[in-house]
């Protein structure tokens, strides 16, 4: 009769733990299509929380949502005058997101950010950095980049390769949570 020594037990539990970690995580996809502060906020809250649930989270930034990824102070982007106009009125980056209602020429977002500070709600920028730390994948939409004249250099570091609707659908087909915000 053999008895399991403590070394064997430790090895067994280490193997089990390693095996446990190798389990394919569930997938979560968020399509971030809005550049509004009140949409970008829940996008980043849900993305980080999904990562906290051990999920493999991808956020696909398209149309106005792509603006969230712009570097602050990017200025006028694109070649076409219409692209430049779009950039002038949609400065982008997490610091220039508007509110979908009660915007009041920028007073609304300023008040909202003041309240967030006062009541310790993490900002979109903080959550975006946390998401990157937690391994959330950030996909810029290639078509939106071309349409709006936004290059890789106009966007923050650490993004995934630009992708399109096909990649998003392939991912959503396998995902247990897919959201369009």
């Amino acid at each position: 009769m053999t008895t399991e020594t403590s070394d064997e037990a430790a090895l067994k539990s280490a193997v089990e733990e390693a095996f446990e970690e190798e389990k394919t995580p569930e997938k979560m996809v968020i399509i971030a299509a809005s550049g509004d502060l009140d949409k970008a906020w829940p996008v980043m809250i849900l993305a980080t929380t999904g990562a906290a649930y051990g999920m493999d989270v991808t956020v696909f930034f398209t149309f106005w949502g792509l603006g969230i990824l712009k570097k602050p102070g990017t200025g006028l982007t694109g070649e076409d005058w219409r692209q430049k106009m779009l950039a002038a009125f949609n400065r982008g980056s997490t610091s220039h997101l508007g509110l979908s209602k009660l915007h009041f020429a920028g007073m609304g977002p300023a008040m909202m950010k003041g309240l967030a500070d006062k009541y310790n709600v993490a900002s979109v920028q903080e959550l975006l950095e946390t998401a990157q730390d937690m391994g959330v994948k950030l996909w810029p939409c290639q078509m939106t980049m071309d349409l709006m004249g936004i290059s890789r250099d106009d966007m923050i570091d650490g993004l995934d390769k630009p992708a399109g609707a096909g990649s998003a659908i392939s991912l959503m087909k396998e995902a247990s949570i897919s959201l369009f915000i």
Binding site: S13, E17, I45, T48, T49, A51, A52, Y53, G54, Y119, N120, V121, A122, T130, M134
Partner: peptide, 21 residues
């Protein structure tokens, strides 16, 4: 303490990685 949603969950999830079963 003093942190709003979703920070408590994010913090505990991060800490959970640093402890053993």
């Amino acid at each position: 303490r003093n942190l709003q949603c979703p920070m408590p969950v994010l913090k505990v999830a991060k800490a959970m990685k640093d402890v053993r079963s």
